[in-house]
Amino acid sequence: MTKKASLGIVFATSAAILWGFTGLLSQYLFKETDVSIGWLMGVKTLISAFIVLLAAYHTEGNKLFEVWRHPSDYLQMAAYGLIGLAGVQLTYSLTVYDSNAAIATILQTLGVVGVIIYSALVFHQRPRRQEYLAVIIALIGTYLLVTRGHGLNIALSPATLRDGSLLVLCGTGLAVLPVGLLKKYSSLTILGWGLLIGGIIFEVGHPFWVGLPTFSLINTSCIILITLIGTTLSYLLFLHSMNYVNSTVAALLDTFEPLTAAVGTMLFFNASYNWAEYLGSFLILSTVFILAVGKKN
């Protein structure tokens, strides 16, 4: 495996772990405090957008605005901002609210199937044998985590199934929509404008001055961590990883997110796990080693 591929795997894996961690923080806010989903979405997305755009302008200057001079590019940017960034954040938060962080991240993992189908149909990119194997093992691991080894007995509410299905579709968009843009623009540029588009949409639906939550030390700390780590840094790492690995590999490595969330719910929310969940976690972890033995190309 090349050094670039290794770097891409590190970026994508780090993003997934950070998402899993901040999913736990979101679960705490939504279940234990008066912080609403609508309020949090707009605030964290807009703040992250301004941080990333300032960093992009500092490093690239006026090149930051190049994307808005080409209609095909800004249409793709709008789709990435609405479906990939805003869509994933909203459907993920709704699924956390309906169930918990572990279930939400497990369902998001299934987006890798959509990525493979999209890549095959649009880019005529046939997955390598290692990717097929990694997908199968990741899905088996996800199945064991969801069912706890009890056949098809999945205790998910209708709301969880609805929001989780939308999460899978948006997760696919998150991985495939920015691929063309990454060939022309930097990760900072794409992420900054995408977040700004999503943040504006959220603020139209729920302005930040409406329904202000109670600001305690714990609540404020969680909001800051979700904004800086769970939105700004994690999305930047994931997007940057696709400069080194393809979207299929990046989406496969997102399986570290449900693993992090599952362990976190056990440690911090007193969740219990059986043999099937432990085995599922092991299988999910093994996907990174399967990808590591792939061909250099």
Rank of each mutant, 00 (worst) to 15 (best):
W193S: 03
L85N: 01
G38M: 04
F268M: 01
A250Q: 02
A12P: 00
G38Y: 03
I218F: 10
G173R: 05
K44Y: 02
H206Y: 12
T147K: 08
S26A: 10
E277F: 09
T95N: 05
L82A: 04
T105M: 15
L110Y: 13
L156R: 08
H240P: 13
T232F: 12
I284H: 05
G180R: 10
F11K: 07
Y132F: 11
R69G: 15
L217M: 14
F30T: 01
G81A: 04
L29V: 02
F30W: 01
S272E: 11
P178T: 02
S157E: 07
L121P: 02
W193D: 10
L225P: 12
G171Q: 13
S247Y: 06
C222F: 08
P127T: 02
M1W: 10
Y278Q: 10
I229T: 07
S99W: 02
S93P: 14
T22S: 03
M77C: 04
F208H: 02
L225R: 10
I154C: 09
L29F: 00
S157Y: 00
S14K: 05
Y80G: 09
A101S: 10
V96D: 08
E32A: 06
G199N: 04
G149S: 02
L174T: 11
L259F: 13
G280S: 02
T109P: 02
S234W: 01
T260W: 09
L64S: 05
F208Y: 08
T265S: 11
G164Q: 00
L156D: 06
R126C: 11
V288D: 01
N243W: 11
L144G: 03
T231D: 01
G280E: 03
L285P: 04
V179G: 09
K63P: 11
E203W: 12
S286C: 09
A120V: 14
T147I: 11
V293G: 07
K295L: 12
I137V: 13
